[in-house]
Design a protein around this nucleic acid. Structure first.
Length: 333
DNA sequence: CATCAGGGCCCTG
DNA sequence: CAGGGCCCTGAT
């Protein structure tokens, strides 16, 4: 196996997210299953990041408060990384920081959302507990598609195993800030990996989808940054055209990668049970119809998926602090 | 031990 | 447009 690359602190940035900003609730999502590429503890997240083909380490730290937010980001690179001109170097780091801000929504303005729903009977108390949280996750479109594929038709534990297997076989191991983590391989990085090899790693029929998606991205047939600027329906269409990507995966990506706060049109059976309990107090054995759930969430209008994110993350944070038995049963982690 | 459904999707008829 | 098949795993 390839050996660990030791990364050195190369540059430090300070960013001021819009207030209010909850560092931990934005930077750590207890329900996200990716592991091996990050470590979180209150106030700090170590995260690997593949940027312009190069494996990096980021140490993201809370240096402020909810009302006076300040985030410190240390960027670790290989000492051998050669950034030839000062201009090139500045662009490399500035663009990276822009991307980190994008993915963690440091500039999201929550004021209107709070004004509209801060006093909502159901959502109000959630907003109070989760004040300053915003959606946030670090996976690029390519990476998220791989994640989406391993989520399909599998229990959480199996998804985690598949994800780690992929990282440990095709990723790059890096060490920075005394943490050893795995960094994602670049798009097209599975060019020389056969479908059979993936199947032997217990990816099952997903091997085919992963190969096709890797090939598609390797040939640069899709441009994440251009797609980001396109209308929602274009994004949906382009994603659905990818082999192995259906409505469930698209729905996750429209929210997490393209930041469509208003799209909420898909509820899978296990999620249906959880929402039924959350919003209607129904036992998970007797869930409310998907239709009724969708009607309920519609009242949050252009913020309806953001609202769901608040409900959902609030539940997981509560679960993290004090085990919720019915939830544990449902997720079977 | 065997059986089965699971945080979907593709393909066929 | 409904439903079978797909891989593997842990639950039963």
């Amino acid at each position: 196996m390839s050996k660990t690359i030791k990364l050195k602190l190369r540059k430090t940035f300070f960013l001021k997210p819009t207030a209010p900003f909850s560092f931990d609730k934005t930077i750590h999502k207890p329900d996200h299953f990716t592991s091996g590429d990050n470590i979180w503890q209150p106030g700090i997240r170590w995260q690997t990041w593949r940027w312009r083909g190069v494996p990096l380490g980021l140490k993201i730290e809370n240096s402020g408060s909810v009302n006076k937010p300040l985030v410190k980001i240390g960027i670790y690179t290989s000492p051998n990384l050669f950034l030839n001109s000062q201009e090139f170097k500045n662009r490399f780091f500035n663009d990276l920081i822009g991307e980190v801000s994008y993915f963690y929504n440091f500039n999201l303005d929550l004021k209107e959302f709070y004004r509209l729903f801060g006093k909502d009977r159901k959502l109000g108390p959630v907003i109070k507990r989760m004040r300053g949280m915003r959606p946030g996750q670090p996976s690029s479109l390519y990476e998220y598609l791989i994640v989406g594929i391993v989520l399909q038709n599998a229990s959480v534990r199996r998804s985690i195993n598949m994800f780690r297997t992929l990282l440990e076989n095709f990723g790059t191991q890096v060490k920075f800030g005394r943490k050893e983590l795995w960094c994602f391989w670049p798009p097209g990085g599975l060019k020389n990996v056969s479908e059979l090899k993936l199947r032997k790693l217990k990816l099952g029929y997903r091997a085919k989808s992963i190969k096709k998606i890797d090939d598609y991205f390797g040939k640069k047939l899709i441009n994440e940054f251009e797609l980001r600027e396109q209308p929602c329906e274009t994004q949906r269409r382009e994603l659905l055209a990818l082999y192995g990507v259906g409505p469930a995966t698209v729905w996750y990506i429209l929210f997490d990668v393209f930041h469509r706060w208003d799209v909420f049109d898909h509820i899978s059976p296990w999620e249906q049970k959880i929402y039924s309990k959350l919003w209607f107090g129904k036992e998970t054995t007797n869930p409310v119809s998907v239709d009724k759930l969708l009607r309920f969430i519609n009242k949050y209008g252009k913020y309806k998926h953001l609202a769901v994110h608040y409900f959902w993350e609030d539940l997981w944070w509560q679960h993290k602090e004090q085990q919720i038995d019915w939830l544990r049963k449902e997720i079977r982690a």
